[in-house]
Amino acid sequence: MIARRSLLRTSGAAAAGALGVAALSSTAAAADSDPTAGVTRTLLQEHPSPAEGWEAVQTLVQIPRHKESGRHSHPGVEVGYIVRGDVLMEFDDRPPLRLRTGDPFFIPNGVIHNARNVGTVTTMMLSTYVVDETKPLVTNY
């Protein structure tokens, strides 16, 4: 199992890159120009799956106003719920999906997507993944 807990909520580009989140920038100008600045994934829990080689991971994803997660995929499915905010979920292979507070969503294994905050508050998404335990949770494109 990959020790994701040590990587989440850790400052620095190496830790952030390993999870597919942007490292916090040292200057406001750089943060303003980086569309993923301030995006965080906080690990809530992880457990072995009943299927050998897989694990269940749950995170709280926060996307500040006018920011986005960046194009990425996961080595398994993502089942999510919009706790707060408005998101335009963009996909490489299908039309975008507008999600609002209270909406659930599902992203199939390996599908490249980007969550863009199109609302007026920091978006909070509860995301649960069932993923291959030998691969990184997030692969950026």
Score class of each variant (00 low, 15 high):
residue 2 I to P: 04
residue 4 R to A: 13
residue 4 R to N: 13
residue 5 R to Q: 14
residue 5 R to W: 13
residue 6 S to E: 13
residue 7 L to A: 01
residue 7 L to N: 02
residue 8 L to N: 09
residue 12 G to E: 13
residue 15 A to I: 13
residue 15 A to E: 11
residue 19 L to K: 06
residue 21 V to P: 06
residue 22 A to I: 06
residue 23 A to D: 08
residue 23 A to F: 05
residue 26 S to A: 15
residue 28 A to L: 10
residue 30 A to T: 14
residue 30 A to C: 12
residue 31 A to I: 06
residue 31 A to H: 05
residue 33 S to G: 13
residue 33 S to M: 15
residue 33 S to V: 15
residue 33 S to H: 14
residue 34 D to Q: 08
residue 36 T to E: 01
residue 37 A to H: 00
residue 38 G to R: 04
residue 38 G to E: 11
residue 39 V to T: 05
residue 39 V to S: 05
residue 41 R to K: 13
residue 42 T to N: 07
residue 43 L to S: 02
residue 44 L to I: 08
residue 45 Q to K: 11
residue 47 H to D: 08
residue 48 P to E: 15
residue 49 S to I: 09
residue 52 E to L: 14
residue 59 T to M: 09
residue 62 Q to S: 06
residue 63 I to G: 00
residue 65 R to M: 12
residue 66 H to F: 02
residue 68 E to Q: 06
residue 70 G to C: 15
residue 74 H to Y: 08
residue 74 H to K: 08
residue 75 P to W: 05
residue 75 P to M: 05
residue 76 G to H: 00
residue 76 G to M: 02
residue 78 E to M: 03
residue 79 V to T: 05
residue 82 I to Y: 03
residue 85 G to S: 07
residue 87 V to W: 04
residue 87 V to N: 02
residue 87 V to G: 00
residue 88 L to M: 15
residue 90 E to L: 11
residue 91 F to A: 02
residue 94 R to N: 08
residue 96 P to H: 03
residue 96 P to L: 00
residue 96 P to Q: 03
residue 96 P to N: 02
residue 99 L to C: 00
residue 99 L to R: 08
residue 100 R to E: 08
residue 102 G to M: 10
residue 103 D to Q: 07
residue 111 V to L: 09
residue 113 H to S: 02
residue 116 R to N: 09
residue 117 N to C: 01
residue 117 N to G: 03
residue 118 V to S: 02
residue 119 G to A: 02
residue 121 V to Y: 12
residue 122 T to P: 12
residue 122 T to E: 07
residue 126 L to K: 04
residue 126 L to E: 02
residue 126 L to D: 02
residue 126 L to P: 03
residue 129 Y to K: 05
residue 131 V to G: 07
residue 132 D to W: 02
residue 132 D to G: 10
residue 133 E to Y: 14
residue 133 E to L: 06
residue 136 P to Q: 06
residue 136 P to E: 02
residue 139 T to R: 02
residue 140 N to P: 11
